[in-house]
Amino acid sequence: MTLDQLIALDAIVATGTFRAAADRLNKAQSAVSHQIRKLEDELGFTLLSRDAYRPSLTSEGEVFYRETARVLEQVRSLKSVAAGLRSEQEAMISIAITSTMALEPVLDLLGTIKQIYPATNIHVASEMMGGPLARLMAGDADMIFAGLQDVPIDEVETLPFGAITIRPVASAGFEAAQKPGVLSRLEMQRYTQVVVSGTGGKDFDQSRDVLSGGQRWTVSDFEAKKSIIKAGLGWGGMPEHLIQDDLASGALVPLRVDGFPPRHTEIFAIRRRDKHMGKVMSAIWTSIETDEMPIDAPQST
């Protein structure tokens, strides 16, 4: 059994045909078929049924493939570690963060990393909605901190990093805030909803919690959104960490809107599988994975 044989099996399952797998692996179709036949001969059972146009896993093949996927994931992880160990300290790393999360946990981590690797420049960008994902997939960010909406899971690695809550609010004097009970969507269409525009472009548009048919005021960031809401000019969802003091003082109050409950989102550190990590990125990733700050990295001179 060889790694190439396992990779060939994975390619066939992923693409659906021997021909497509051969194209993906840059090999002749006959070579891929030969690898699978040799693997089946060694195992003593058939992995793929060839009765139809598209090969399908046999019952034994399904069990074997599940383990194959785990092995290949471990191999990819091992290659990434090796790449980081042999790489030089990066000149710059770029990180994009969703604007809905607090910056402090990320900045605490990056501050420690910067002390260990002072020669590496760190670029941090706060992006709206699908902006972090757009930066990652375009190759403009080495890592992002965001939710998993629309994220191509097969193409990335993820580590849990925290959670956020978006809560519908209005100023205490806002007309809708003074009405008891749950407010209907029809009723809320009378009031201006303040929304933040995304920075992900049309391919990564993640606008959520937007009331259809209602009046709308679009702004570029959450600070502007909060100012407009506090001024009594509209209502909208705000990350809780940005409005804790305003809720405590009563300047803002929660709204109960039908179909717009407080939204809880898990935040992940996300990076592309096909991009090798250098020393600094490896240190950041390991710190998140182990919840421990690196202490033995070499100091730059």
Rank of each mutant, 00 (worst) to 15 (best):
L186C: 07
A82Q: 14
T158N: 10
L3V: 14
Q193F: 09
E155S: 13
A31P: 01
H276M: 14
S87W: 02
G234L: 09
S184V: 08
A91N: 13
M188R: 04
D291T: 12
L43N: 00
L148N: 06
K38G: 03
E266M: 08
D209M: 15
R76Q: 14
P55Q: 01
D258V: 07
M129F: 13
G84K: 08
L211F: 11
Y117W: 14
H264E: 15
E104C: 00
H34C: 09
G213H: 05
S59L: 13
D142A: 03
F268I: 01
T100K: 13
I97C: 07
E90G: 03
S227G: 12
L247W: 05
K230Y: 00
E187N: 07
I267V: 15
V124L: 14
L186I: 11
A21C: 03
Q5K: 02
D150Q: 14
G237K: 07
G173E: 09
A224S: 15
I95H: 02
R208N: 13
R185E: 14
D258R: 13
G131C: 07
A138M: 11
K27D: 02
A248R: 13
A170D: 04
Y65N: 12
L148S: 12
G201A: 09
A82C: 08
K202G: 05
D221R: 09
V219M: 03
A176K: 10
E155I: 03
E104T: 13
L252R: 04
L242T: 04
S126G: 10
F18Q: 00
Q244L: 14
A163D: 10
K114I: 01
M137K: 04
A177L: 07
Y53C: 00
D274R: 10
Y65F: 15
S56V: 12
A177C: 05
I270G: 06
R70W: 04
M1C: 07
D258W: 12
H276C: 08
P105C: 07
L255Q: 01
E90V: 09
A14N: 11
F174L: 11
A31L: 11
V253G: 04
F268E: 00
D51H: 11
Q189C: 13
T100D: 12
T46C: 08
L183E: 01
L110A: 06
M92G: 01
V71S: 02
G44I: 09
E187S: 11
P298R: 11
L247V: 09
I97R: 08
E223I: 11
P160I: 04
V210A: 13
I153T: 12
R135M: 14
R216P: 01
